[in-house]
Write a protein that binds this DNA or RNA. Sequence first.
DNA 1: ATGGTGGAAGGTCCA
Length: 262
Amino acid sequence: MIRLATWNVNSIRIRLQLLEKLVEKENPNLICLQEVKAKEADFPFEDIKKLGFENIALYSMPGYNGVAILSKLPLDNIAQHQHVGKDDARHISALVDNKFEVHNIYVPAGGDVPDAKINPSFEHKLNFVDEAAKFFSTKNSKPRVLCGDFNIAPSENDVWSHKALLQTVSHTPIEVEKLENFFKRGKFADAIRAYFSESEKIYSWWSYRNHNWATNDKGRRLDHVWVDKELLPAITKAKICKYFRAEQRPSDHVPVIVELKI
DNA sequence: ATGGTGGAAGGTCCA
């Protein structure tokens, strides 16, 4: 049984106590973190091993980005991947327990202006998603699980207001189109939506800039878990840990959990 | 058109 948690932790060092709480409350045996924001020398390997996660795969850089896979199960074939010619610590993968491949991805946020001609960050984001689509379009010997902060909320009910956010980076038509192309080319299934109706609004991120996040509830679903279609029947649970947003010193993203009988 | 907050780095950038 796999209990996978994906979480944009926004600094692993600041969030160590919350990571401990995640382990205590949700009992995952595989955790994919994004935005660890610590270079290897500053990464708290020992604290994490003490939580029971002996196997750690890290791809990090100073200050920004950084992805890590924490596992109670064996990790093999650990690989760091580069897209759009940048070595910027956004994608790491590993073979878990010799059964399936997990890919932990942090898609670029894309800046504020949704125009690739004038905003290089947005151009980077679009190109990154296109490259990822190509990367995952080939057949793989082991089944794949993709997760992470994709920084795109594709469906109307992945955002608090479809209309209000049509020109907001994360929900523009061009981003949604590219993410859907990625999804279709890879023949993936959305492990979270498999457990929630299409008509239900579900979010995994609420901005720090809104203190009334809980009452306004202007969230977006930026964090995703996709599985190869053949794995869809193996999913026994999906959960978004909204209560983490209300913790002391929270991340702006909350953990998303999927349970798989593999 | 702007500001609101948070983190890391280091005298600012990115989300």
